[in-house]
Design a protein around this nucleic acid. Structure first.
Lengths: 233, 233
DNA sequence: GAGTGGTCTAGACCACTCA
DNA sequence: GAGTGGTCTAGACCACTCC
């Protein structure tokens, strides 16, 4: 067949993006309803709907029942970062990966950690400090807290060979997670392990997970300032 | 079955997540095909498909034609950050927003900027420095380069009242973008405008956009170390 | 109340990939 | 070649909002 059957939802989406980019559909303007577009493109309404939903997810249009669909005034495009395992991430670059467990103990969670996980102050958690190397150079310092009430098996798990990271993804499912980035000055401990001067700027990523409202883990991942999280939109 | 009319694709997704979380569907295991699930849930295959596609997008399962759908071994969940306009972002918190243009000039792009955009070294771009305040306190220092060959209208645009940010989203569509996070020590200029001591750790976000292979803009957004990019997965 | 998007169904064909 | 996901269609009803 020829151009006739080129009406996949991706084709529709592409055409809609073109109309928005060329300002044939002006920012803030109402665009035709799904029924009208379906008629124009010679497609089913479900197909038009799929294309429009994708544009809405990308932030190019805003949709409201009864009000209709309009081109977003401020295209709020989203950045999607994939957060792989450290090991996977490093091996993907072709560099050698090595892991070392620095310490392991049951300790009272610091106030900030307890608060982030919604635990009462002073709760006792499993605390691990780990170091990940890429190509022989320090790559990430991992400061992890695991809630043993939620993941009792972690108490007897062996984290000396593989990181808690990998153990958890295989043994502790979660239903909700938060993720955040920030910058900070390296603490003495972080600086020592990463081979930096104390106070050096470091990139900090934090992740917390829950399984059905029960906190699972909190991890603070510290990277040298040369590190970049990059993504394509 | 429970067969009330509560078989929306979200309900199916929730049940599937539960099965993965309870390891009723083990990591790496093949799960039933769409047809079988549709029969079991008493739903149309399209509905099952919608739920499964959503799980795949979230990284919980991996799908391949003929091979079927299996629970992801390493739940490579992705973090999605919405990158709104600074103004929108600040106003959403209820704080007052104010903007100031610090400088504007045509200059040769620094090597790093030219390289990131794929321009030849020494290309002349429009260079803007701006400062965004939230609630009277410095929030973001914006160091922007605009490619006038791609966006000639920027040469005569007035950036004294509203930021290049807002002007660009309304006047310069793009088809590709990259986004990245990193940590750095504040330069003297950045520190001065953000009210920090030089060398203080700052969170740096960079964004570059292209319109059909022609570079549009490069922006470096510098935040005080108190700043956090947070997201829910 | 009425209009628009959100979703479900049933059936069909296609496209990819594995054996 | 055959099995599985990917997508399209046509029709229907529902849910939310705006007037």
């Amino acid at each position: 067949m020829t151009a006739a059957r080129r009406n996949s939802w991706r084709d529709l989406r592409e055409e809609m993006i073109r109309r928005i980019a060329t300002r044939q559909w002006m920012p803030g303007a109402l665009i035709p309803g799904e029924e009208a577009l379906a008629a124009e493109f010679g497609a089913a309404r479900a197909t038009v709907n799929r294309a429009l939903q994708d544009l809405a997810r990308a932030g190019l249009v805003e949709r409201r029942r009864k009000a209709g669909t309009r081109v977003a005034l401020h295209p709020v495009r989203e950045a999607r970062f994939v957060i792989p395992l450290v090991r996977t991430e490093i091996e993907a670059t072709g560099a050698d990966y090595s892991y070392r467990l620095l310490s392991r103990a049951r300790e009272a969670a610091p106030g900030a950690v307890a608060e982030a996980l919604g635990l009462k102050q002073g709760a006792t958690l499993l605390h691990l400090a780990c170091l990940h190397h890429a190509g022989g150079k320090p790559y990430q310092f991992e400061d992890r807290w695991i809630v043993l009430d939620t993941v009792p098996a972690a108490a007897t798990a062996d984290f000396s060979a593989t990181g808690p990271n990998e153990w958890l993804v295989a043994n502790a499912p979660f239903s909700r997670a938060t993720f955040g980035f920030g910058a900070a000055a390296a603490s003495d401990e972080e600086a020592r392990h990463l081979g930096l001067a104390p106070g050096t700027p470091v990139l900090v990523a934090e992740r917390r997970t829950w399984l059905a409202d029960k906190p699972v883990t909190h991890v603070r991942m510290v990277h040298p300032p040369t590190h970049r999280f990059e993504t394509e939109l």
